[in-house]
Amino acid sequence: MRRVASGVTLAALVLLPFFGSNYALDVANRCGIAVIGVLGLNILTGFTGLISLGNAAFMAIGGFSAAFLITKAGVNGFAAIPAAGAIAALLGMIVGVPSLRLKGLYLAMATLAAHFIVEFTVVKWESVTGGVSGMSVPAPALFGVVLDNDRKLFGLVLLLALAALLFARNLFRARPGRALIAVRDHETAAAVMGIDVFRAKISAFGLSAFFVGVAGALAAIQSRIISPESYPLSLAIDALSMVIIGGMGSVAGSVLGAVGLTLLPEGLRAATNALSGQWPDLISKLSILKELVFSILIIVFLIFEPHGLAALWRRAVRKRHATTQQQPEGGGK
């Protein structure tokens, strides 16, 4: 049953570029990119227990690295994406070094500082980043295939999102991923069991920044033009919202949170358009409305369901399972 469901979903996604509208593909790309980024943040915050307010900074590092590599270093667009991820990973590990001494709110502050320092650097380092005016990002091209619109880009985004998903799922079934969870749950106990806490934390930062950097590079390629203003602090907070609402420490939750909260503003847009007859000023307040809804969702989820959509999902599945088992004769298959 589950296999059928995932097969159908996958088939629908593969076929999307052939029948989806431009708008649908734009949204689908943003969903896929969000999945990659949120998985990255969840590896760090959800699975390893290290809060980061620096997510937007790593998106920026990924985006500007890709842009620089493609336009100024002449690197092929396809190669620039993992390279941007690698640069972000390297810087992520540097930012992660203080995390060995700092926990909780101190780490939140350190990563917040990292956000502002990266923002300042991006604005000032004009020779590389183009300063306040930003840069344009050319479409990646290989063997005559140019991914210059959302329809063509979707295949790449889908592929990378699936790869990220598979990697994350298997990571937490294997020793290195388990080590991160152990560090989150009890650091001393983890160390006693022979886990190198230093290595675990640094690799969590590096891995997380790699995912986020790749997401940043893809987002830059999708939007074609980037500037320091493309990466406000609210972007980092949105990403944290996706992690929390999806489910901290859950791979499936990352997908639910990323897709759900990327679709939500689109739903709001449709709703405000529909209601614009009665309340004409509603459309202009869309971004405010979005923030309002996100904020309320964060608070409500933290109070009532701290494990997010993933827990709701699991419970719903279990409930259905239980009811089908209770009445084996009546229900039928």
């Binding site: 915050t45 227990g49 809060i51 926990k103 909780g104 709110l105 939140a108 907070i237 944290l240 919202s241 929390i244 901290m248 307040k285 405010i288 409305l289 923030e291 309002l292 996100f294 904020s295 309320i296 969702l297 964060i298 608070i299 933290l302 109070i303 701290p306």
Partner: peptide, 22 residues
């Protein structure tokens, strides 16, 4: 956990800010 409390105040910040903007 500390993360939840930090996040809830971020949510609160967003709620107050967007409420005021609205």
């Amino acid at each position: 956990p500390v993360i939840s409390v930090i996040m809830v105040t971020l949510g609160l910040a967003g709620l107050l800010r967007s409420g005021l903007q609205f």
